[in-house]
Design a protein around this nucleic acid. Structure first.
Lengths: 367, 367
DNA sequence: TGAGTGTAGTTTATCGGTACAATAGTGGTA
DNA sequence: TACCACTATTGTACCGATAAACTACACTCA
C-alpha cells in the first residue's frame, strides 16, 4: 500500500515517530492524531485561561493524543517565539577555572541555582574555560541562549559592562559594582569587617601584624587591604611594608609567605597573620604547623570568608563569614526582577557579614 | 515624513535597532543594510567553504554591515534548524542539593565542563532543586534544550533510563551502570580498592574493624561494603554486625557513629574505622579528637575519595583516590561521541583508582 | 548560433512553536 | 427571515535562522 499523501490520513492513524532519526514528535503530529488543528493543541496544552474555551471533549482528545505520542514541546521553538529561554547564565571569571577548590563560588552557585529553579529557570554555567577574553565573548552571551547573566568576578572591565548594557542583556554583578547607575549588583563591605578583625587582633596586644592579601587590582583585595591599614592607623601602628604582600588568594601563597615571614629575625617577625582569605589561612596554618609552632600560642591568625574548613581547623579559625549562599540567591532575585520588568533596576544590595571568633587569635606571647 | 513601507528602503539607510524593546538585530537587518539577500549574509558569516563562492566585494560589504549593526546570530534560531543546541546537561541527583560540601561533584563538573568547553559546548546544570522526581522530569530533559545528558547519580532507576533511551536523548551514566547494552557509563571499581584498604588495615594487626558505609541501595554503598566483607573473609575475620552501619556519606554520620562505637565496652570497641567516604572520615576524626584520642595511636582510620581535606588532616588520611576530574572528562567525551555519531555506543569506562597511604593507619595499640 | 559551464546570488520551504485575526456553526430575537 | 451575538475552532503570518533548489548572466567552445 503506497500512501503518497500522508497529510490526508484520517485521525486514528497511529503516527509512527521515525526512530533512529532525530525527528521529534511535534505539535503537528499531535494535531493530526487528535484530528484538530495545531492551534487547538497549542492552546489546550499551553494551559491557562484560553484552554478553558475548548469543549471538554476536544480537550480530552488532545490530551490523550499528546500522551499517546509522548509529546514534549520544544523549548527551543518556544524560546524563538516567546523570546525567553528560561535560562540564567552564571559567568565565572577566568580566575575560577576550577570549582573544586572554591567553596566560595560553590556557595554562590548553589544559592543562585536554588532561586532560579524555584522560578522555573535553568542555569547555565560559563566557566573560565569558555570565554577567553571579555570582548570576544560578548556574542557568546548575547546569542539568546540565556535571558540574563550573573557575573561572578572580582574584577570586570568597564567596557564589558558597557557592551552588556548596549546589548540590553540583563545582568547582575556579584562582588563588584559599576559606576553606571543602571547596573545592579550584590556585594559585601570588605573594608569594615577587615578593620574589625584587625582591631580584634590589636586588642590582643599585637603590633607586628602581617597581611597576606589578594591582588590589589581586585576590589576585594583593595578594600580588605584598606581595612587593614585603617585599623592600624587608628591604633597608631605604622605599616611595615615587609609584612605586607598581595599575591592572591591561594593556599600555596599562605604556605610560602608564612615561611618567609616566620624566618625573619625575631624582632621583625610578625606575631599575627591577617590572611586575605581562609584558603590562604589554611596554607599559613600548615606552614606554622610544619615549623613546629602552635596557634595561637606562638602566632595568631585570621582568615576571611568562613569556608567550611575554617571551622574544622584546630583551633577553629577566627574569620569573617560571608553570606555566600545568600549572595547567590540575591543575585538571582535581582536578575529575575530585571528580566521580568524588562528594565534596568540598578539595585545595589550590600549584604551584611559576620565576625566569627574562634580560637586562632590569642595574646602576644612574652618570649 | 511618513514611511509606511520600510521594506522598500534602499541600503545605506541606517537601520536603527528599536532600543527599549527586546528586538535584536537579525540576519534580515544585516541583509537590508548590506543590500543583499538574507542567504548571502547567512552563508558569508557562517564561514566555511561556501562563503568562498562570494565575491570579495560582497563579503566585505556583509562583514561591514554585520559589525556596524553589531549582529550576533541567535543561538536559538540556529538550534531550531540545526537541531543542535550545543549544550550539554549535567544532571545531579536529588541527593546533591548542595554543591558546597561536595568536592566530589565539583571535580566531576569541572572535568566535564572543561571538555565541553573545548568542544564548543555549553554546560547546563540541573540540580536536585530542578527535578523533583524522575518520571516527571523526562519532558524537562527532552525539550531540546540540551543535546545530551551526563547523569551523576549513585542510584538511577531503570525506568528513567528507559525513558531516555526511548526519547533518543544521548546520555552517559556516571557512577552507575545499566543492564541495557546501549547505555554508556563511567565508573570505578569500588569493591577492589576497598578490599585492599581493609587488607592494609588488617595487615597492621587490626581485627575489630568498624565500617561506616553509604546506603546499601546505592551501587557504591553496596560495592564498598562487599569489598570490606571480602577482605575480612579472606583473613577469616567474622563480621560483627554491631560494627557495621550504613547511614550514608555524611560528616555528621561520621561524628555520631564514631561516638557510639568508641563508647562500646573495651573488648568490643573497634580499633580501626573504615569510613565509606572521606567526609564521613573527617567527621569521625573530629569525634576521635573530641574524645581526646589520637590517630593512629589510639585508633586507625581510612577514608574513600581523597577529597582535598583528606591531605590536610593531621595525620593525613589514608584513603582511595578517585579520578574525579577524569571521570567528568571521560563522561563528556563519551557523550560527545554519541552525539556526534548519533548512535548509542554503550561504551563503559572503568577508571582506575589509587591507594593513598598517609598516616592514619597504624599498628594496634597493646593497651 | 546555440548548447554547455561556471560564477554570484536569490527564492522557497522548513524547523516547531505562538499571536492575532478570521470563520463556521448555533441559537435567540425583532 | 434577516441580523446579531456567542462559542468553538482554525488560518495565516511570523520568530530568526538554514538547506536545497533555482535563476540570471557572462563566457567558452563546437
Amino acid at each position: 500500500m503506497n500512501s503518497d499523501n500522508p497529510e490526508h490520513d484520517k485521525p486514528g492513524n497511529s503516527v509512527k515517530p521515525t526512530l533512529g532519526r532525530k525527528r521529534n514528535v511535534t505539535l503537528k503530529d499531535v494535531a493530526a492524531y487528535a484530528g484538530v488543528s495545531k492551534m487547538t493543541v497549542s492552546m489546550i496544552l499551553g494551559g491557562g485561561p484560553q484552554s478553558e474555551r475548548f469543549s471538554p471533549d476536544t480537550r480530552l482528545k488532545v490530551q490523550n493524543a499528546a500522551s499517546a505520542l509522548k509529546y514534549h514541546p520544544s523549548a527551543v521553538a518556544q524560546a524563538l517565539t516567546r523570546r525567553r529561554m528560561n535560562t540564567i547564565g552564571v559567568v565565572l571569571s577566568q580566575q575560577f577555572t576550577s570549582l573544586i577548590d572554591d567553596p566560595y563560588i560553590c556557595g554562590l552557585l548553589d544559592g543562585a541555582m536554588a532561586v532560579n529553579a524555584a522560578h522555573g529557570q535553568n542555569t547555565t554555567v560559563f566557566t573560565g574555560h569558555v570565554w577567553r577574553d571579555a570582548t570576544s565573548s560578548v556574542p557568546l552571551f548575547c546569542d539568546g541562549r540565556t535571558d540574563g547573566l550573573i557575573m561572578i568576578s572580582p574584577a570586570i572591565d568597564s567596557d564589558f559592562v558597557q557592551s552588556l548594557l548596549e546589548a540590553e542583556l540583563p545582568f547582575v554583578l556579584v562582588h563588584n559594582e559599576d559606576r553606571d547607575p543602571r547596573v545592579a549588583s550584590v556585594s559585601i563591605d570588605n573594608k569594615t569587617p577587615m578593620k574589625e578583625l584587625v582591631q580584634h587582633v590589636i586588642h590582643y596586644g599585637h603590633t607586628k601584624i602581617a597581611f597576606l592579601g589578594g591582588f590589589p587590582q581586585s576590589r576585594s583585595g583593595a578594600d580588605r587591604y584598606a581595612g587593614y591599614c585603617e585599623a592600624l592607623a587608628l591604633s597608631g601602628i605604622p605599616i611595615d611594608s615587609r609584612l605586607v604582600s598581595s599575591l592572591g588568594y591561594h593556599y600555596d601563597v599562605g604556605v610560602s609567605e608564612t615561611q618567609r615571614l616566620l624566618s625573619m629575625p625575631r624582632d621583625a617577625a610578625p606575631t599575627a597573620l591577617i590572611c586575605g582569605c581562609d584558603k590562604t589561612a589554611l596554607g599559613a596554618a600548615k606552614a606554622v604547623m610544619n615549623l613546629g609552632l602552635r596557634i595561637p600560642e606562638d602566632i595568631s591568625m585570621t582568615g576571611f570568608d568562613d569556608i567550611p574548613d575554617a571551622a574544622l581547623l584546630a583551633p577553629g579559625l577566627t574569620t569573617v563569614r560571608l553570606p555566600m549562599r545568600q549572595m547567590g540567591e540575591t543575585a538571582a532575585i535581582l536578575l529575575l526582577e530585571q528580566i521580568e520588568r524588562q528594565e534596568w533596576t540598578g539595585r545595589r544590595e550590600r549584604l551584611p557579614t559576620e565576625l566569627v571568633l574562634r580560637g586562632s587569635v590569642g595574646p602576644v606571647q612574652a618570649r
